[in-house]
């Protein structure tokens, strides 16, 4: 299965992936509208971890153990073809998944009621994940390993 991987050798810590992710999942037609359209700032599902010399972006690893799915109290989180997806209609914002994710990649939405997580841009019509497309140094790749 194709997944998003980050090579920390090339990650610059520029945070562009976060902005491309947030914009792609905001429903707005472009980045300016997504961030300056009047609403709350859209949330990214990818976060850059910064260190003094090493940076890397992290998003849902779609891990086989998936404690988030196991712990979801409403069945909102499920695994579809290896991708962990969230049915927002069923999410009640209990944040069990936020606590149980070992990578800390599940985030709380703009309103603070539900969770948001990376679904490899499968539902937003973006094609290739937005973080991969937007990375200026090819540090983020979408590939089979």
């Amino acid at each position: 299965m194709k997944k998003v991987y980050v090579n920390e050798d090339w990650c610059l810590g520029c945070h562009l992936c976060e902005f491309y992710c947030a914009a792609a999942n905001s429903g707005a037609p472009d980045m300016i509208k997504a961030f300056k359209g009047g609403g709350k700032k859209p949330i990214a599902r990818i976060q850059v971890e910064e260190g003094s010399s090493v940076n890397f972006a992290v998003q849902c690893r779609h891990c086989v153990a998936h404690p988030c799915v196991k712990g979801c109290i409403t069945g909102a989180l499920s695994v579809k073809d290896g991708v962990i997806v969230c049915d927002e209609e069923r999410c009640v914002g209990c944040y069990t998944c936020v606590l149980s994710c070992p990578y800390g990649t599940i985030v709380i939405d703009e309103e603070g009621h539900k969770i948001r997580k990376c679904d490899l841009c499968l539902s937003n019509g973006n094609g290739e994940p937005a973080c991969v497309k937007g990375c200026p140094n090819k540090a983020i790749v979408y590939e089979e390993r």
Binding site: L12, G13, C14, H15, L16, F19, M31, I32, F35, K36
Partner: peptide, 14 residues
Amino acid sequence: PDRCIKCRVCERQC
């Protein structure tokens, strides 16, 4: 200012 979203990429890259 109408286009800047304050993402701070310019700051980090300079």
